[in-house]
């Protein structure tokens, strides 16, 4: 199933929960087989946007399309890996968890077993196939979740901070593995994270969001560094600084809105105006930038 990713498009999407406007006028185009990271601080609406692509929440305005079809609810073509391993079914073994999707789709027994074995091997869990989720480590549980999603051979894989609960070392291993698995399957991946380094290691493009409520797409940074990537590489480091300033501005805005002084705005660079020094072309207050637009400064940083 190599090269079987679907494009995803988010058009003028508004998401509301009652009177609360979570996301306003979000636009994003994701190419087939592309790896896109949604990056931002907590509460910025990135998971909400992911849930809209998954079909768990319905936009009040605008539309999400996957391939040629409009998203109206969850579907096997869009697999979801959750942050919490509670999403695994604790009464089923790893093998039974992975077989769940194919079983629901009515795949025959023999074919099911082949698929399960294949994806268990892909995530490196063949030796733990008959254990229960409670008997696995955090990293192994997330591998199991990934295998369970891949067994349905989705064209889009949506990942909601899947490594957020893992320790730093395990996370690093998982990131390398995910990079390999993505290339093996060819699926489109939309990956939500608040970890800038993680985004740089994995993504083809990094999407930052304005702080919620009324969150929107802020900037889109292409990230075409050679893989496997290294965060200590100068180009990576430059992109890292840029992303940190981009997000820092949003965090500072949120904190000011909550009544904190400028001196305690949580920014790492210490610029009192909250304006990133080396990002003159980035406009922190321009939500709803169309998906194809890229700031010039970003390109410079990458070359």
């Amino acid at each position: 199933m190599t090269g079987s990713g679907s494009p995803v498009s988010v058009r003028d999407v508004d998401i509301r929960f009652g009177d609360f406007v979570a996301v306003r006028q979000a636009n994003l185009d994701i190419g087939a087989g592309e790896f896109v990271c949604l990056l931002g601080p907590s509460g910025c609406g990135k998971s909400t946007l992911l849930n809209a692509i998954a079909g768990f929440v319905t936009p009040v305005d605008g539309e999400v399309t996957c391939g040629d079809t409009r998203v109206t609810g969850p579907d096997v073509s869009r697999g979801v890996v959750f942050q919490s391993a509670e999403a695994l079914f604790p009464w089923l073994t790893v093998r039974q968890n992975v077989a769940f999707g194919p079983r629901m789709r009515g795949v025959g027994k023999a074919q099911r077993a082949t698929a399960v074995d294949r994806y268990l091997a892909m995530v490196g869990l063949s030796h733990s196939a008959d254990r229960f989720p409670a008997q696995l480590s955090g990293g192994m549980r997330q591998r199991a979740q990934l295998a369970r999603v891949l067994a349905n051979e989705p064209s889009v894989v949506l990942m909601d901070e899947p490594f957020g609960a893992l320790d730093a070392q395990t996370r690093l291993v998982m990131q390398v593995e995910l990079d390999r698995i993505w290339r093996e399957t060819g699926a489109t991946i939309v990956f939500v994270t608040h970890d800038i380094g993680e985004a740089i290691l994995l993504a083809d493009r990094i999407v930052t969001m304005t702080a919620g409520p009324s969150a929107g797409i802020k900037n889109i940074y292409p990230c075409d560094l050679p893989r496997p990537r290294d965060l200590t590489d100068p180009a990576s480091a430059a992109l890292f600084r840029q992303l940190r300033e981009d997000i820092g501005a949003e965090v500072a805005r949120t904190l000011r809105a909550q009544g904190l002084d400028d001196g305690h705005d949580g920014r790492a660079t210490g610029d009192p105006a909250g304006r990133p020094a080396g990002a003159g072309t980035v406009e922190p207050s321009s939500p709803g930038v169309n998906g194809t637009r890229v700031a010039d400064g970003d390109r410079r940083a990458l070359r």
Binding site: A54, D75, R78, E86, A87, L88, V149
Partner: peptide, 17 residues
């Protein structure tokens, strides 16, 4: 857990299943 219900739906389980 709502998470499990979402997981099941995204994996292709209809309401009865």
């Amino acid at each position: 857990d709502e998470l499990r219900l979402r997981a099941a739906r995204a994996l292709g389980a209809n309401p009865v299943r």
